[in-house]
Write a protein that binds this DNA or RNA. Structure first.
Lengths: 244, 244
DNA sequence: CACTCTTTAATGGTCAGACCATTATGAAAA
DNA sequence: TTTTCATAATGGTCTGACCATTAAAGAGTG
């Protein structure tokens, strides 16, 4: 096969790229370049198909990919179409969740990462949290007390962590924390979770007090104690689930 | 509109869910439940379409979504089909990249997050790195010296960070670092980058020496110094790009 | 038998054209 | 003016077809 007598021993490394991939790439390029930005509306599918010179189905697969990636949102009806979305970290969370499901990331890795991450967050929040942030944290803790269902209280907890992360004024941390919270949520189950949950509320108030006093070390210690209790519960439950 | 005289003021909150969404969900469920796992092969598209009682196009949009999410891989040809993938963090990196492009995450946030993250990583690596890890780090640093192109040396740097993250024995950190490295790569440009790059190599050797000596504080300090130099360059370049 | 070439069938990728459900808009009617 | 209804635009889905690639079975050859 390679014994060609022609003076050209090497051929062009052709590669078949699928139509939808090329379309996605072009749209992503315009996004990175700033030609397309949040709020913009892409032409209708039928129009775009003509423009890209592909069938509507190929184009739709591209749009579907972008939608799943959280880049656009498809709205039906007159004046509908594909709208470029504002940034939402949901897709990152989803991607991390998929990764954990597919792979063999252990619970230990998740909890360790969360612990380390919260250390940073508490330290930064201690330095940067405004009184508004702190008041919001307290309000959430208060609301948690009044909530009646386990799920509602868990939602409050997630919100508490999110607001705390926001207090760092760095959204990257917010994404990381959201991801880990969501993934670990799957493991937080069991009959004794409710009593644990109740006892955690007080800890949240304490943390705010430490933050307000700018006592970094005390705040970090409180968060570690808090998370370690949660993680002990999670581990215990996970083992129980593995048995049953 | 709400003035219905019927004794049933509230109706069931119906919502039209698209076919491909339901399909994706079902497959994801089987994944979380363990019924489907890496390496498994899904039935052919035409078969699956019959099974789900949808058209092939709807089914294809679902498969396309899952492929873009990195969950399956579509192989064409006889004995081809959709194969469940092993976990790859690429999609998380892609999602974070999209997020940064769409949103207005600042360079400052990225570099700050990276700095904080590397602190943790260095500390953990200091405690857990095996001699194999350290030798690999040195080998990469050696190779960096010999590489001739800027791009090749950058690739070495990324690899160095990845191996360092792996030395923590916690893959979550690896993902975070990969994401940040990839995103920051876009900003690392400019004529004086090459000279900076050269001068960074020595720092990598120093870090390994500190790690081997289990000198956590020295290692952290070296990494901070290292990264701060890089980030100064990145910031300068970013400003230059904004001007031009 | 061993090896090479050809054929065949399975499968994903693409295309074309159609119909349905939803939605905004404007015209018609009250 | 307000309500109702027809209309057109648009995404979601369906059907059926053809192409390109690939692995495996079969045919031919030494």
């Amino acid at each position: 096969m390679a014994s060609s007598p022609s003076p050209k021993p090497s051929f062009a490394p052709i590669k078949t790229r699928r139509a939808f991939e090329v379309i996605c790439e072009q749209i992503r390029e315009q996004l990175a370049a700033g030609t397309l930005k949040a709020g913009d509306k892409l032409p209708a599918e039928r129009e775009l198909a003509v423009e890209f010179q592909v069938s509507r189905s190929a184009l739709r697969e591209a749009l579907r990919s972008l939608e799943v990636a959280g880049i656009i949102r498809n709205v039906k009806g007159a004046k509908g179409g594909a709208f470029v979305q504002t940034a939402e970290p949901d897709r990152i969370v989803q991607a991390m969740q998929d990764y954990v499901h597919l792979g063999d990331i252990s619970l230990g890795e998740l909890t360790e990462a969360r612990l380390a991450l919260q250390d940073i967050i508490v330290r930064l929040a201690c330095a940067r949290a405004t009184e508004t942030d702190l008041a919001e944290l307290e309000a959430i803790a208060e609301r948690t007390k009044r909530e009646s269902s386990v799920e509602a209280r868990y939602a409050c907890a997630v919100e508490y962590y999110a607001v705390l992360a926001r207090a760092t004024k760095n959204r990257i941390f917010g994404i990381f924390v959201d991801s880990l919270s969501t993934i670990l949520h799957e493991f937080v189950r069991g009959p004794d979770y409710e009593t644990l949950q109740q006892s955690l509320i007080e800890s949240r108030f304490k943390l705010v007090r430490h933050l307000r006093a700018k006592d970094e070390e005390a705040a970090v210690a409180e968060m570690r104690k808090h998370l370690e209790r949660v993680h002990r519960h999670v581990r215990k439950n996970s083992k129980a689930a593995a048995k049953g």
